[in-house]
Design a protein around this nucleic acid. Structure first.
Length: 498
DNA sequence: ATGTCC
């Protein structure tokens, strides 16, 4: 009997207090026993609240799940009719990207070379709060006018050209641009103009444009990797078809829409909550973080416009970071070339065919996983293989590139988005030893831009990535085509003695 | 996630 993939009976022991009508299908839980024990009651409660919320057709809990804003981080929530800002998340279109260079691994064996790369990247792509554009040359400066184009067009030809980003990279994005629900660019422009005019937000928004090309903080990072292809000939061939090469140095990035998306999300939460209160509407399970709108309503359309603009910002932010990282490599290795393998989000709602109808698939800390032949891949270069899935594990145990299998239909064509936090930041700072964390990375030949690695971001603050990965593969959702071994990490550094 | 509360 396969215990790696179980349907959580919502009338079962985890949820005995919640009466559920027959109309509700159970929540799908992806996780072996170790993983299921990692969830905790609050994560299940949030999943059940999400499942019982209006208009929701399906909820999937992935092995990296933990408590989040309204819905767990590490879940999928689908609705044909309703849009939920909480289950998109506050960092709209937080995503992963993978840039492969033609530098062979041997070239970055020495710490001296790696230090040079770290300095070259840190000079161009800052971590922590503040502006990404602080050292940008004039040619790349994002003013209000270009920022407007970024927010409304995403990775359009004009935006890519202005920012010096290779135009071919747009084809390697899960979505290179996002439009308003009515599919017209003018609607987004009108929404942005309205925010500037009616709500006196323009100055603040313009200041956020200056964050383009930066990582921010928290779990965001940039990491140099050595690519190791799968030993399985079928999956190795898929990796090679995507352009991955054994022993190449690649760069994995994790970040999102920075202050720009944050402001859009928070404004939406505020206005939707206040609208619920004015109308005397009840929040799902009494939780204001599960506030929602019907997608076709005026409020729903406004949210979808703001989500699209946050997503456009995140996309261009990521592509710009990759262009700047490639330039940094060229500082150290003149003439080196690089190609974007893929860019894929784990905090977004997308319209997708699911269970026989078009639905809003909310992925909150979950990654799209379309296998070969999926209707939304038809006509793309990934039609015959499925698209790359980029999963950060942790620097010590590595990260993974996967391909979806037909079994992904059981998880709403989604997998996890990483390892998933197992310790709160507070608990990690209290319980994990700083010297042990730093020694661990040294032992694994990994260096970092931080004097000391942030304790709340240490590998052991997260779940065992091998357990998470085996939960996914044993459920038949996806298979690994390549693993990524970290060589250096850029993160928002923690002070030495906090 | 976020100039970590407008």
């Amino acid at each position: 009997m396969d215990t790696t993939h179980e349907m959580l009976e919502i009338t079962g022991q985890a949820t005995a207090t919640l009466p559920v009508g027959d109309a509700h299908s159970p929540i799908t839980v992806i996780g072996n026993q170790t993983i299921r024990e990692s969830f905790g009651g609050e994560t299940f409660r949030q999943a059940i609240n999400s499942r019982l919320a209006p208009g929701v057709s399906r909820v999937v809990l992935n092995p990296d799940a933990h408590v989040g804003y309204g819905a767990p981080v590490g879940c999928v929530m689908a609705s044909p009719t309703h849009i939920y800002p909480g289950p998109v998340g506050v960092d709209i279109k937080c995503s992963m990207s993978l840039l492969q260079t033609d530098v062979p691994a041997e070239e970055i064996a020495s710490h001296t070379v790696r230090r040079k790369l770290i300095q070259a990247i840190a000079k161009r792509v800052p971590t922590g709060p503040g502006r990404g554009q602080r050292h940008a040359p004039k040619s790349r400066r994002v003013d209000g006018s270009l920022g407007f184009r970024v927010a409304t067009e995403g990775a359009s030809k004009l935006v890519l050209k202005k920012l010096g980003i290779p135009k071919a990279w747009a084809d390697r994005c899960e979505d290179s641009h996002h439009t308003a629900p009515d599919d017209t660019a003018d609607t987004l422009a009108a929404r942005l103009e309205w925010m500037g005019r009616e709500r006196d937000k323009l100055n603040r928004i313009e200041s956020k444009y200056r964050q383009l090309g930066s990582y921010g903080g928290g779990n965001h990072f940039g990491e140099a990797e050595v690519v190791q292809l799968s030993q399985d000939p079928i999956y190795r061939a898929i990796a090679q078809q995507w352009g991955l090469r054994e022993g190449a140095v690649a760069f994995l990035s994790h970040c999102g829409s920075r202050g720009f998306g944050h402001d859009l999300a928070m404004n939406q939460f505020r206005s939707l909550k206040s609208s619920f209160q004015k109308q005397g509407l009840a929040f799902p399970a009494g939780d204001p973080q599960l506030v929602y709108a019907e997608a076709n309503s005026s409020a729903g359309q406004q949210y979808l416009c703001d989500m699209a603009m946050g997503a456009n910002f995140a996309t261009v932010n990521h592509l710009l970071i990759n262009a700047l990282v490639l330039e940094s490599f060229q500082d150290v290795f003149p003439g080196v070339r690089g190609e974007l393998i893929y860019f894929i989000s784990h905090n977004i709602a997308r319209q997708e065919p699911l269970d026989g109808q078009t639905q809003w698939v909310h992925r909150k800390g979950a990654t799209r996983a379309f296998p070969a032949g999926h209707s939304q891949l038809v006509g793309t270069e990934f039609e015959k293989t499925g698209h790359p899935i980029l999963l950060p594990g942790n620097p010590r145990d590595g990260s993974s590139v996967m391909v979806a299998l037909p079994g992904a239909s059981q998880s709403a064509f989604s997998v996890n988005h990483g390892a998933g936090r197992q310790m709160s930041r507070t608990k990690a700072k209290k319980h994990l030893s700083q010297t042990a964390i730093d020694q661990d990375l040294i032992d694994h030949d990994i260096i970092s831009n931080c004097r000391v690695f942030p304790r709340d971001e240490a590998p052991d603050a997260y779940k065992d990535f091998n357990q998470v990965m085996s939960s996914v593969t044993e459920a038949g959702l996806a298979a690994e085509v390549a693993s990524l071994k970290a060589k250096f990490v850029l993160k928002d550094g923690a002070p030495a003695d906090d």
